[in-house]
């Protein structure tokens, strides 16, 4: 970058070296702030200038991959999505996401979250396994049905919601906002028929009953997924199912693509990459 430094900012970084440090400790460094610098850019600058062994996770630097969730000035955020200037202070405190064990420096151990995510079956569950493995036609879904879950499907699994949740702070058995939000995403997908299976897990003590709408997950979500909304809607579904008031719906059928004259400017589908040709 050729941009001249605007001013100096101080980075407080929480560091932990496994096998060497007994507990994490804070370290302070000053770096020159250039226009448009994100917290992630700042960390790179810091690594370049004064802390070569500093470790963190990041990849896309554009809020897509969900690697760089960190506790920035007391709030879980994506480092790449946070301008230093938007913090409104010359002091940036960066710590690893709380509620996850620290592997090294700013690297949290997200595995427990992904294990729970998997336990809640975040995929389409249907009887027609053959069709799923080797699709011949399409599952029918209207744009309106898509809207029922589209918001929740924007989740990038960065773990910010888990770091902000007061229940996750004490209860490792609680599934947490991310896995619950994703379970709801598949429960409301019109192509899915797995509600009965997921219900078995969700009705227990790790399910949405541990949520009391402190609302933190939705406040910190960098993608606007609103996990709190998903969890409350999930409770509604589960309770109305218990009271036998839930509308039964069968998973969307397999349909032929619409017939009729085809507009000429639409390009043909690319060749298949999976299954038999």
């Amino acid at each position: 970058m050729t941009d001249a430094a605007v001013k100096q900012v101080t980075f407080h970084v929480r560091r932990f070296e496994p096998g060497v440090d007994r507990a994490p400790h804070w370290e302070s460094h000053a770096i020159p702030l250039t226009p448009g610098m994100t917290v992630l850019d700042g960390l790179w600058k810091l690594k370049e200038l004064s802390a070569p062994s500093l470790a963190w996770r990041s990849s896309c630097r554009m809020g897509i991959c969900g690697s760089c969730g960190m506790l920035i000035n007391g709030r879980p955020r994506l480092a790449c999505n946070t301008q230093i200037s938007e913090l409104g202070t010359d002091v940036v405190a960066v710590a690893p996401l709380p509620n996850f064990a620290i592997i090294k420096d700013l690297v949290p151990d997200l595995r427990p979250m992904f294990e729970t995510h998997r336990e809640l079956m975040p995929y389409l569950i249907r009887d027609d396994v053959a069709e799923q493995d080797d699709p011949t036609l399409e599952y029918w879904q209207s744009p309106h049905e898509l809207e029922h879950y589209l918001q929740f499907s924007y989740c990038i699994k960065c773990g910010c919601c888990m770091a902000a949740c007061p229940t996750v702070a004490t209860d490792p058995q609680y599934a947490g906002p991310m896995p619950l939000g994703q379970a709801q995403r598949y429960n409301t997908d019109s192509r899915d028929g797995g509600f009965a299976e997921r219900k078995e897990v969700l009705s227990g003590g790790s399910g949405p009953w541990r949520c009391h709408f402190a609302g933190e997950c939705s406040q910190v979500c960098p993608k606007g997924v609103d996990p709190a909304k998903a969890i409350q809607l999930m409770k509604r579904e589960l309770v109305s199912d218990l009271l036998r008031m839930r509308k039964r719906r069968d998973p969307a059928p397999v349909v032929q693509p619409p017939k009729g004259p085809r507009r000429e400017e639409i390009p043909a589908a690319p060749p298949r990459t999976a299954g038999e040709a």
Partner: peptide
């Protein structure tokens, strides 16, 4: 054995 450091907030997080 994991050498990771536990970082759950506990009651403070409430």
């Amino acid at each position: 054995a994991s050498r990771a450091h536990p970082n759950r907030l506990g009651i403070k997080g409430w």
